[in-house]
């Protein structure tokens, strides 16, 4: 069995973002972390691999810096090897990222692709689903539990109104929600080992995509209207008085 898992780098959610001079992207001189949902996907890949004797491969897309997040976020935690696809992240939309992943899936032929359900920078929540359709594979998104039973993965999904359980025949695409697991920390030994693990570097040209044009373009970024802090009320009576006579919402 073979599992491909994504290791996407995202801006640190607590970083102060500055819109660049062009107005259509951010100044990329900020702190980055591994996408939290990818941490869940990596953990799930490792757990499934240990139960099913599988090989695990982490993939990251972006400039050379991305290799750090593949090594520290995935290989140091125990993923067997990495693939880095060199590309300018800003020029990729969800569709192109899915196409890159599809090309890698065709080279590696994994039984399962695990991704974070969304990247917390773009917040699009599309790549796993796009990839599944492009491959003609079943999908189980927003997973909070995954078990492999024979030729199927039994997946519990977090959906509006409750929890849905699906059985998908492998190979399949599964996207991780936050409650899927508690990602392990990399051990010191893991970090040392990660430095020697294979990390293949691919250029976009190596993947022979049929199309390299993004379908969706950001034309302008702007700051949302701010919300100013209100007042501290003295007690319950003052709060109720404000809600009924000032805000008129009760």
């Amino acid at each position: 069995m073979k599992i491909l898992v994504t290791a996407k780098r995202v801006t640190d959610p607590n970083a102060k973002l500055v819109i660049d001079d062009d107005g259509s992207w951010i100044d990329d001189d900020v702190e980055y972390i591994l996408n939290p949902f990818c941490e869940n996907a990596v953990e799930a890949a490792l757990q499934i691999a240990s139960d099913n004797d599988a090989e695990t491969i982490a993939i990251g897309i972006g400039d050379e810096e991305v290799q750090r997040y593949i090594r520290q976020g995935a290989l140091a935690r125990g993923v067997d090897r990495g693939i880095h696809v060199d590309a300018e992240e800003q020029e990729l939309d969800s569709d192109l990222i899915a196409k890159i992943l599809k090309a890698v899936v065709e080279r590696e032929e994994p039984d399962m692709v695990l991704l974070g359900k969304q990247a917390v920078d773009g917040d699009s929540n599309q790549v796993g689903q796009l990839l599944a359709e492009m491959l003609g594979w079943p999908q189980a998104t927003f997973a909070s539990e995954v078990k492999v039973e024979g030729a199927e993965a039994i997946v519990t999904r977090e959906v509006d109104g409750g929890l849905e359980t699906l059985a998908v025949t492998l190979p399949a695409v599964i996207t991780a929600d936050l409650r899927l697991n508690d990602p392990r920390y990399a051990s010191l030994a893991g970090i040392m080992k990660a430095k020697k693990k294979p990390l293949e570097e691919l250029e976009l040209d190596d993947l022979e995509l049929d199309d390299e044009e993004p379908k969706v373009r950001v034309v302008k970024l702007h700051e949302p209207a701010g919300r100013s802090a209100g007042v501290v009320v003295a007690d319950v009576d003052e709060l109720l008085q404000k809600l009924t006579t000032e805000a008129r919402v009760l």
């Binding site: 939309d93 569709d95 689903q129 796009l130 359709e133 998104t141 993004p214 379908k215």
Partner: peptide, 21 residues
């Protein structure tokens, strides 16, 4: 969660670009 789950697959089928949320 239904729209997020299904619409990207529709986009892939129709080779359409998609804007989420």
């Amino acid at each position: 969660t239904l729209g997020k789950d299904i619409l990207p697959r529709v986009a892939a089928r129709l080779e359409a670009g998609m804007a989420s949320d």
